[in-house]
Write a protein that binds this DNA or RNA. Structure first.
Lengths: 152, 152
DNA sequence: TCAAAAAATATCGCACGCGATATAAAAAAT
DNA sequence: ATTTTTTATATCGCGTGCGATATTTTTTGA
């Protein structure tokens, strides 16, 4: 009846679906490391720069503390990271990789390649338009601004 | 250290982020209707064709029954749909819109337009490449095949 | 016909995500 | 110096998502 309510015209549904399916394909690869996809994201942030407050990690991943805090607690329980109050600013909690968390980077190096290999297509990456990354980054930037404006 | 483990090189992270942010922007629009985004998706499927078995809805949304079943139960509790065993095939459960579920389509018509309006950008849609939909559909098709192959 | 396989749905457990709200510490304002 | 505001993190509750598995019904095959 209303074309704007057809599933085939929904942009968000496509992103929702691609995100879910990609995460499902990640699952067996990350399971062998004993981590989930959001935990993998946190580790990537820390591998780039260790010793960060919770809020910096949250901002980098565009997640809120109500998601990040329990996530980090689980990672601490699993021995991947340590959480410690900042000496100079008692509000901040600094997150640091443990030896286990640091060593996992070596095992994770093969994950991106294995992901591509496991996708049933002769050339998944090559079939994507060259400019897909900037398009997505523009979208994220616009959406991020919108959400920030909403929460004011 | 390893470029393949940099967040800025992650395709999946971008889809994950766009999906989450878009859903957050949907939230206040759908809240006024009393529904969530996944429930909105189920309703769109039923508005296109009422009276469908659970599995058809699940396939359409590329979700599994362990997600759809509780979702449908909540929607039944909220008086949006009815679930009834199929007479001819006792395994199937047929999902039908209630009057409330049907009437909600009229209220939902404005949601897509209001979503665009609420996004902080002069021309969000116009700044997307013309061929973004087929690209996404190709991705979904490839990923769907991969996940199906995984579960064999 | 009758056991075995397949199909459809459901249950269980756990990890997110996030709106709403609370708590604690630091910074700013009066 | 004290109150107010802001910042950083955490808690609570609920709704997904999904891997693993179970249940029920139908279909298939020997």
């Amino acid at each position: 009846m209303y074309p704007q309510l057809k599933l085939e015209n929904q942009l968000c549904f496509r992103f929702y679906t691609v995100s879910r399916l990609l995460t499902q394909i990640y699952y067996p690869l990350l399971k062998s490391l004993g981590i989930t996809y959001p935990q993998y994201l946190v580790l990537m942030v820390l591998w780039e720069a260790d010793h960060q407050p919770v809020n910096d990690i949250a901002k980098r991943l565009l997640l809120n503390t109500n998601t990040i805090t329990p996530l980090l607690k689980r990672m601490e329980t699993d021995g991947l990271i340590k959480r410690k109050k900042d000496k100079t600013d008692g509000r901040k909690v600094i997150v640091t990789l443990t030896k286990k968390g640091k060593l996992m980077e070596e095992q994770a190096v093969s994950v991106p390649d294995n992901l591509i290999k496991s996708i049933t297509c002769s050339d998944f990456v090559g079939s994507l338009p060259q400019d897909i990354f900037p398009v997505l980054d523009n979208m994220i930037d616009t959406l991020r601004q919108t959400v920030e404006t909403m929460n004011e």
